[in-house]
Design a protein around this nucleic acid. Structure first.
Lengths: 207, 207
DNA sequence: TCCTGTGAAACGGTTCACAGCC
DNA sequence: GGCTGTGAACCGTTTCACAGGA
């Protein structure tokens, strides 16, 4: 497949959210202009983004909401459910484990790990916190696609490597550390400090 | 001030995290190459990023860790504490209210709001959940700089407008909705669905 | 007429490469 | 000799503008 920009994927996801919203309201058809407003871009951008994957619209008419929704879901790989494990049973891990957005969007949390004996064995809803020592041993039974990393910075690289050894092919990293992983493993960083400091910068330099 | 790219600010924040780390280890001096590795970029990028704000290094020697840390903190506006309110006392709001990273980084949570009578009045540590109806009335007493938005999608735009009316000049938006606010209000979006779907895409198109 | 799809132009960010200073 | 600071070249993304189909 043709090289696709990171930013394009990000926007496709936003378009999908918008489409699901307007689909739920019963609207049948949408123009690139409307989609652009809902996604916070321009109509040309919407058309360019979609054109990477094909021609889904009808000239003079716009896009079928139902069809475009299905296309985007398929492009983004949402036609199946993904198996997710959370590594690190601290505050962030706990919040994520409870977050309904994961299962709603097709991401099932199938395990939670920690190294702290005080936490291992704790009941978290349907799950029990497992010993991170069994990460690799669990891999064939649990078969996780994605690891959510929420451990102290000092443990992040090591745990990422172990997750990869356990067969994980994507990492959602909440730790403010630059992970080094094989190129075939996808990593997304979520760094609250960066977001806060970007706001701080904006407030300082215009406010 | 010269126009600064979003991406530059994001990286400055990463450099700062790295610098604090290596400063704590007692290292006195750092080269753009080392900083690049810790921040996940290239040495040329580090130098370009810094050059926007001045010349902080010594040719042949590198950068003083202490001085560069101080400079970055100043550039990012971290020389003071910021007042933050959380709007929406649901799961996400609760998790954020407890998150130690906020106060550690200089962001004090001074209020939590909700519209649900069942939640209003609840004790959250030092805070009590306040009625969102009093947002504007509270503004002179609380004087929030930043609002963290964690409400249902249908309420997001309305609450953002009320936060702005209450004097907030920056919004950290956890709701998957494109907010429309005056241009002098800074907005950062944190959208978990986008991150997950980007991983899903990556898994589908190479895995 | 309306709106998509898409080459071409414009823009902005990244990388290169080297002069300049320690 | 080593490493910064920076103009210039490069490259990918966004915007423009319009041909073409409903």
């Amino acid at each position: 497949m043709k090289r696709v920009a990171e930013s394009t994927i990000r926007r496709l996801s936003l378009y999908l959210t918008a489409l699901e919203e307007i689909g739920a309201r019963g609207t049948r058809t949408v123009s690139s202009e409307e989609l652009a407003q809902l996604g916070g871009t321009t109509s040309a951008q919407v058309r360019k983004d979609l054109s990477v994957f094909g021609s889904f619209g009808k000239r003079g008419l716009g896009y079928s909401v139902a069809e475009l929704t299905a296309r985007l879901r398929s492009i983004l790989g949402l036609g199946r459910r993904w198996r997710v494990c959370i590594i690190g049973a601290g505050k962030v891990g706990a919040a994520l484990a409870q977050y309904p957005g994961f299962p709603e969007r097709g991401f099932d949390i199938v395990a939670v790990y920690d190294t702290d004996p005080a936490r291992i064995g704790e009941r978290w809803g349907d799950l029990k916190v497992r010993d991170a020592a069994s990460l690799e041993a669990d891999s064939s039974a649990l078969n996780c696609d994605i690891a959510v990393l929420a451990v102290p910075a000092s443990a992040a690289q090591r745990m990422a490597e172990r997750a990869v050894a356990a067969g994980v092919r994507a990492i959602l990293n909440f730790v403010p550390v630059q992970l080094s992983v094989p190129r075939n493993v996808a990593v997304r960083n979520v760094n609250m400090a960066v977001e806060l400091e970007a706001l701080s910068f904006a407030l300082t330099n215009r406010g």
